[in-house]
Write a protein that binds this DNA or RNA. Structure first.
Lengths: 225, 225
DNA sequence: CCAAAAGTGTTGGTTTTACACCCATGG
DNA sequence: CCATGGGTGTAAAACCAACACTTTTGG
């Protein structure tokens, strides 16, 4: 009776970023069993007296070198058989980082890599489920909050923003409708800078007006082209 | 090092039902410290080898006599100081039951009561936060899935359905618009029965077409008057 | 006959969708 | 001068919001 309810608790993170204008997820190659040779989400056990979010940040830094993440809890995976080593409850987080953080170099134990969302390798544990749930959550958030600015660089072109939305929503959006919508929402301000890259007209750079995560939740469904 | 990650894990449930055409939440009066005399959500520790949902169902039955619940996880509350007895992680669930289940009679230890959503008593722990999150979740679910049928009797009038939506969304809806919307969604079929109760025209009874929880998720925002 | 809730359509405004061409640049 | 992506408006369709009266019943 005195040990009722005790079990091992871990955290896992589904880290998204945009790399080469494409939405990507951070995975770690497992070099030891279980699931040796397969990939898995970064994560690990929560220490005594450590908040869940602290644990995620610590593990991400240790395992991948990634810092300054935005976190949002997506769910807890508690199946009795989900981990072959024994019962381990895992609290999963959606994590967003600004692009271009350098990853830790591969070591004997660790090897972190970015994967395109539609080109994921085989995953251990129930981590595919976790990733689907994270994507669904991200899809919701992107439509009801300004969460996107957590994942884009400080200034960005409208095409980059649209591409992010398309990647997250998994479908194409109309360029003119998208721009009209975004502009009349008043969440962006244009800068005086341009991005020039390649044999074509330069693109104006924009920033978010609100530099904090904030719900536009009163109206579900804010974006969409 | 060998005890890393071990902590006590509990589950809590925010149980909703409709009673006298009003949305209500099930609470338990605490007869012992901490928070003696205040109310709290039903819940308790997860047993060894027990799935989280099993634990919720067991605790609900033990503490309140409520059975046959529909469960949906809403979040995990892991703050280091959220329980004065020590660190206890709690996985919270949204729980819906059909109306008119009889509650267990009050005992020395337990005393379960239904409260209207806008007339809640003072709550112990972080249970007010959990209830707000549950309501937000319910608001989302009701607009994107047929979850409502988990909480209404098998057949119901359109007015009862509308009242549920109004309670959940916290605002009034237009009767004609609501009925039009609901009918063209094709999620209801009318029965041949009528509900007669009171000095007025009897109301036709309807049932849900799908008798399973199913997302209408492709389009967020399905209802609304 | 009265009170109470059930039931039923139309219209104007807003929002969403579909759609095609010119512009600025680098090579 | 050519290829590439940046940038811009309009019209039709779909959707949403506002609105009032008749019906059926019990007492």
């Amino acid at each position: 009776m005195e040990t009722r309810g005790f079990m091992q608790v871990a955290v896992d993170a589904v880290v998204f970023t945009v790399l080469q204008d494409e939405l990507r997820i951070l995975l770690i190659k497992r070099k030891y069993p279980p699931f040796k040779g397969m990939y898995a989400l970064p994560g690990g056990f929560v220490n005594k007296g450590e908040e869940l979010e602290e644990a995620v940040k610590r593990e991400l830094d240790e395992e991948t070198g990634v810092k300054d993440v935005f976190l949002k809890q997506i769910g807890t995976y508690g199946g009795v058989r989900r981990d072959p080593r024994g019962r381990i409850l895992s609290v999963a987080f959606l994590a967003l980082i600004q692009p271009n953080q350098r990853l830790k170099a591969a070591t004997d134990a660790m090897d972190a890599e970015w994967f395109a969302v539609d080109g994921l390798p085989e995953l251990g544990f129930d981590h595919s489920d976790i990733i689907s749930d994270a994507l669904e959550q991200l899809r919701y958030e992107v439509q009801t909050t300004n969460i996107a600015f957590q994942i884009l660089p400080k200034s960005f072109t409208l095409t980059q923003l649209q591409q992010l939305y398309e990647d997250v929503l998994g479908r194409g959006l109309d360029k003119r409708n998208f721009r009209k919508k975004v502009k009349e929402l008043g969440i962006l301000k244009e800068t005086s800078e341009m991005l020039r890259e390649g044999a074509h007209r330069p693109a104006r750079l924009y920033r978010f007006v609100e530099s904090k995560y904030s719900g536009i939740r009163d109206e579900i469904h804010v974006f969409l082209g």
